[in-house]
Structure formats: structure tokens, C-alpha cells
Nucleic acid binder design. Structure first.
Lengths: 204, 204
DNA sequence: AGCTGTATGTACCGATCGGTAACATTGTCA
DNA sequence: TGACAATGTTACCGATCGGTACATACAGCT
């Protein structure tokens, strides 16, 4: 109802029809909370209040819709990550601890269901699945960034420290959804701190 | 073909009919490699070379078959765990490092697909699902044992150290299947060692 | 008004899902 | 030989799966 073109470009070109956005919003919510395989396209279109062909006009397949969901998830992930980085310029130790403090807090929320990309990779072990591709790319980049930050911290074996931080992060994502509030994910920042300070540095 | 009763008990009582074992063996393999939701009961009975009613005579539902698979997985998990414990009596630090060294090696195998119980928990977020119940029980007990071992190591904050080890373990399971050989899981034992030695102890 | 293009909806497809009923066959032991 | 337990065979169920051909609504433009 009503025209929704008040924002988003005065030019006639309103890219991305309304239905597509509704579908992606709903898919994101259902996929994250219940899993991609657990949700059928019928449930998505029913919840979004749109017709099924609207889904297939905007997305070539359910797998592609899942990949789109994860691409959005990926963007938001890096926003959170870069926010923590920007808060502590030139101090990678403080950067990663800020990120992990926030991440650890999020794992305690009742609605927490882990990392959407990690979960998707578990649901789709096949290397060529569109959803898994997005997840793998994200994790590879995260690993690269963490190793880079470990280098910035002056660690002798930066790759090992960076990988250790990645293990803690993935562990937090998983045990957050396994244990809920009060689970081990709560202490991810503290353990990362211990691990960082325990890693041999050149200047010591 | 041929009689397969040469081993396995001379007494008349051959508990658990042959078909049930075949089904569970096949289900274990397929569920672990491809995921529970990804495998249909038809594929299981076809691969096992049995008739579908044989599955439902031995297991009340697919969910119960999945739970049975995980109960077996759970037993084998604790066998591996207790083996590492038994190898270093009275030395919890060596115990957990032995376990993690082995676990880290397993994550590098091409067929590695993570922890079956962790994966099942991701596939079934609903708390009342039979498969998830088995997984949650296993993880809770693992957490308890790790905290207990951390206490045995003399850590001031044994709960935090135990939880840190759990995060590393879960992280290794997940990144093992995400990155394959050469991934961060390779360094899980080394990082656990650093974390343990970094944790404040009463006697120091 | 009339045309045109875009966005959306109705109704349907074959395949597969988990699960079952009824009955035939086999092998083992007494 | 007869009885019994285990397994196989066949055929089926309703529900849901991902996906599509086709009709309709509605805007802007002339």
C-alpha cells in the first residue's frame, strides 16, 4: 500500500522490485534461525506474502537465494569486524579483542544461532554449492586478516596465533548455539587475550 | 552370500538382527559424510541393500535412526578421549594435549567432515530433536570433563581454561571441514598448549 | 482513451519425502 | 516336520520438495 518510492532514488529506475527485498528479508530470517535445508521455498513465499514465481524471477534457484542471503551476511559480518578495527587504529590486539567481546556478547542472546556461513558450510559439504562458496571465501579472508593482525602484534609465529584466534572464534560460534547463554562462548575474549599474551613475541 | 555366523557368539542369541546393523553402518557413513537432512531413507536402504520395512522394524523413525548413529558416535568419541587419558595417568595437561594432537591429525584427512554431533546440532536447532539431544548431552559432558581437567592442572580459573579448550576443540572440528588439509585445525594442539601454559596457576 | 512493459498472482508439474499395509520367502532350531 | 523369527517384495499413502506455464493487474506514456 502507498507508494514506497519516497526514498531510494528520485530517478525512475527503482532497482530491485519490492517482492525481491521482502523475499530476501524473510529468507534471511528463516534460513538463519532454522537452517537452509529445513526451510522450503513455499514457506518463504508464504511468510513473505508473495507468489512463488516472484521468488524465481529474482533468484534463479533456492540455492542462489541461499547464496544471496549469505552474501548479505558476509557484508554485515565485515561491517562489524571493521567497526572493531576502526575503534582501535594501529592496535590489532585491541581490535580483535573488541571484536571478540562483542561477538561473545552476541552469543549469549536467546536468538543466537551461530554464524550463518559456518552453519551453511556444515549443511552443504559439497565444494561446488553456491552457498558454500560464499562461506569458504569469507572464512579464507577471515583467516588472512587474523594472521595479518597477529603479525601486527609482533608474534613470532603469526600464522599459528592467527589460526588459534580463528579456532576460538569458530568455537564460539558453534558452542554459542550448542550451549546458549552461560556457555563457553562467553569467555572467548578472555581466552583470546590469554592466547595472544602467551604467544612468543620478537621483542621479548 | 555364504554364512556370516562364523564369529559373533555361539549361543543362539544373536542380538540385533543383521539388517539393522547394515542399516546403521550405512546410515553412519552417509549421515556423517553428507549430513542427516541431505540423506533420505530410500537412499539408505538402497545402499544397504535391504528393504525399507527392515529399517522401520529396527528404528521407529528416521530421527531415531539418526539418534542411534549419534549414540554410536558418542561411544567412539569417548573411547578416543579415554584412550588419551589412559596414556598419561595423573597428567591432565598431557592427556588433553595427546587427545588434541590426534584430533588435529584427523582433521587433515581428506574424508574429514567434522564432529558428527556438532554437525547434527547445526542441522537440528530445535531442542527436542532426538539427534540434538544426544549431541547436547555429549557436549555438556565434554565441557564438564575439560573443566575438571583444567582444575587438575591447577588453573586458578579452571572454568575459563576448560571452556577455552572446548572453544579450540569445536573450532578445530569446524575449520577442519571448512579448510581441509592445511587449515587452522592443524595447530589446535599447539594453541591449546600455549593457552594452558598462559593460564594463571595457584602455585606460581 | 489505448498501448506497452513490468510486476505480481493462480494453478499446476513430476519427483521425492518419511512412513506403512499386506503378504511372500527364507533360514534356524526343536 | 513344524514353528518361529527375520527379511524381502510390492504397492501404496499424503505431504512436501523445487520449479514453471500462463493469466492478470497496473503503472507511465502518447
Amino acid at each position: 500500500m502507498a507508494r514506497n518510492s519516497k526514498i531510494e532514488g528520485q530517478a525512475g529506475k527503482d532497482r530491485q522490485p519490492a517482492a525481491a527485498k521482502r523475499i530476501l528479508d524473510v529468507a534471511r530470517d528463516l534460513f538463519y534461525r532454522q537452517g537452509i535445508r529445513a526451510i522450503g521455498v513455499d514457506e518463504i513465499v508464504r511468510t513473505a506474502g508473495v507468489a512463488k514465481p516472484s521468488l524465481y524471477r529474482a533468484f534463479s534457484s533456492k540455492d542462489e537465494l541461499a547464496a544471496s542471503y549469505l552474501r548479505q551476511y558476509d557484508r554485515e559480518f565485515w561491517e562489524r569486524f571493521d567497526e572493531a578495527v576502526a575503534a582501535h587504529p594501529g592496535d590489532p590486539r585491541a581490535q580483535i579483542l573488541a571484536f571478540l567481546t562483542r561477538a561473545g556478547q552476541r552469543t549469549q542472546a536467546p536468538s543466537y544461532r551461530g554464524c550463518g556461513m559456518t552453519n551453511a558450510a556444515v549443511e552443504y559439504p559439497q565444494a561446488d554449492h553456491p552457498a558454500r562458496r560464499v562461506s569458504e571465501d569469507n572464512k579464507r579472508e577471515l583467516r588472512r586478516r587474523l594472521r595479518e593482525m597477529a603479525r601486527g602484534m609482533g608474534a613470532d609465529d603469526a600464522d599459528t596465533l592467527g589460526d588459534g584466534l580463528l579456532l576460538l572464534i569458530e568455537g564460539a560460534y558453534i558452542s554459542g548455539q550448542l550451549f546458549g547463554a552461560g556457555g563457553p562462548a562467553r569467555s572467548v575474549a578472555r581466552n583470546a587475550e590469554l592466547l595472544i599474551d602467551a604467544s612468543p613475541k620478537a621483542g621479548s
